[in-house]
Design a protein around this nucleic acid. Structure first.
Lengths: 213, 213, 213, 213
DNA sequence: GATGAATGAGTGTTCATTCAT
DNA sequence: GATGAATGAACACTCATTCAT
């Protein structure tokens, strides 16, 4: 009774190619025609699955942002201690290279589009919220255990995410990984120090070594 | 000089309108035709002064980035003490609202273009270098005066700029000024604390008040 | 018969929706996709019942034109006297509002298509012939009874249909029903007078009242 | 100072070709690409002179409708006597062949578009008003001279225009010129008779001859 | 019988640019 | 210096249709 629906697979294929074109040719070059060309189909094929280009873009944004969280989350799941877990998270978030899960062209293209398109904007807000949620637990635990007074966990989390965002962005500008990796490590130590976590409790705040015993 | 200044004026007019269109309609909408329309001239008028659209974009990038540094620099010139000066700078850099000198749409449009265009990329690198140069002096002085060991001034500067970039970017995502202002204040206190500067020397690191004592 | 009637029903449903789309969106908007959309089916569903779009259009033309004659015919069936019957017919035909049985957008869309498509053209010819046939009897009787010489019944009929067509068309242009209703009444009186029919035999040819004593 | 404006001529050329394509290929076939093709230019050439296709259509409607009045008006200018003038006008208006100044495909395409587009609709209203104005004078004079009572000049004019419109439309359907010419002549005699004009005062209302002495 | 994938041509429009005046 | 005509390609999108399931 009717033909089997290939929609899910076809949509995925299209998004794959869209991602690729966007990464290689940028926003201006990511036309439906180009995507179709790569796939060896007609533009109308894409229209069959995504009614408008905006739909296609929206779908891509959802895919990369949820994909990002999905891929990054399990990386510290094994760590039990909140302090160590936070250290692991910051080591990841503050390391621009490890943040390269999404192609920069694609990520910033979508981010740029979020300035104009509410739907996309909300996806970025969700990403932010998801990251904040991941961080909040460990941060709160650390704060509770320490003698620090008056520091709000949410504010710390916001600061952490700001550092993460900024490091990635500056990595694009500077294109100097070791230098930004150093800044990332310093930021990690500083934040952990602020929270008086065990790992950062060492009096020597060299900030230059990933594992400074 | 009559001739030359006329061309300069015309170019400036064109850039003004380009900025405006870019701010209002985004990258996709910022066509030569639209700019020309607003000016009440033909696209060829623009071509007369900027051979290609790329030239026009390059000129805009130069204008906004150098303009940014020019406008932001004098704001702490009156402050003599390095510690206070640094505090002033961070108060400014870490306050997303004060960073709104350039329209976000324009700034991120240009930033996005820097991913593909070397000339623009170099302009952003220069901006980075300029900001780093402004920060380096005070940071070095503070570090020298303090008992902190092993912290590299350049790394601190990179971290500061990362925080700044991230706060602005997240302000776009969150659209919650008080929240990010708090994160900015916390970041400022933390950085100053790291450098053992006078202002941040207070034992109470509340981080919630611009002037907390 | 189960099968057949099912196909007939489906065809009818499709034609219903086609009519509706044509009325609301005009010729340009009446695409198979739009019709299918409204029905909640795929365009291929329509193709299943009407091999080509032209077939669909042809079917619609047949439906509306035969439907028109079917609906309009019984309206004077009860009237016996040829003179009165003719008066009744003209009262109907020359009243643009009563002629609104077919949506104007649909009627003129089909009429326009008749300029290019022979099949449709023939349907309009048939409509014309049907109307002429309906009028011919009463007109001939009236002519025979009067003392008028040299007036051909067929020519009178053609003239009547011309007036009818023109009134409907001008109703679209003027959009002023009372005014055209007046013109219709005058035309009716004039035609009846020409034929020396009883009803119009009054010396006072005011032409302004439906029933002027 | 700048290039000479060829706008007027170019626009006219474009409209010429548009008219031609519309006449030959109908509404569906009258695409900008086809027009451009015939002219040996790019579609963008047309866009340079008519911002949208609607503009182009509007311009064509204005051109054909005003052109129609302009061409038809002088045909009775030499006739002084109101009765004869009216006779001449009706002889023209009620002769479908003489009304063929505008290609039927073009005329009815535009008429059809008037159902949806207000601007075009207004142009048809203007055409109607212009025709009504031309007829009103002679009709009023005839009415004043005759002993007819209670007939409104405006209503007569509306009726005349209805007959004219209907004859043209039916000519399209019947495609039988002599037959409709006869209906036209009968209508002419009838109308003139209604007005008790001199020419139609003859007792013999044969209605079959243009000049029945 | 009915669904849905896929085609291939076509739409109006906009683009950056070049050329002629 | 400035205007405006003209180019040629590209854009997102819609179309009627066919084919496979």
């Amino acid at each position: 009774m009717g033909r089997k629906s290939l929609a899910r697979e076809r949509k995925s294929e299209i998004l794959d190619h869209f991602y690729q074109v966007l990464a290689e040719e940028g926003l201006e070059g990511a036309s439906l025609a180009k995507i179709a060309d790569r796939m060896g189909v007609y533009p109308s094929h894409i229209a069959h699955y995504f009614k408008t280009k905006q739909d296609l873009v929206n779908a891509l944004v959802v895919r990369i942002l949820t994909g990002f969280v999905r891929e990054v989350s399990p990386k510290w799941r094994s760590v039990e201690s909140p302090g160590e877990r936070l250290a692991r998270m910051l080591g990841l978030f503050f390391s621009p290279e490890e943040m390269g899960l999404i192609d920069r062209r694609v990520f910033y293209a979508c981010f740029y589009l979020s300035l104009s398109h509410d739907t996309i904007h909300r996806n970025y807000q969700e990403l932010y919220d998801n990251l904040a949620r991941l961080l909040r637990g460990p941060v709160e635990t650390c704060l509770a255990g320490g003698k620090t007074g008056g520091v709000d966990a949410g504010t710390v989390v916001d600061m952490i995410i700001a550092v993460m965002s900024g490091l990635v962005m500056n990595q694009q500008i500077l294109n100097d990984s070791p230098r930004l990796a150093a800044a990332g490590r310093l930021a990690k130590e500083t934040v952990l120090g602020l929270l008086h976590c065990a790992e950062a409790g060492s009096s020597d705040r060299s900030g230059q070594g990933e594992n400074h015993d």
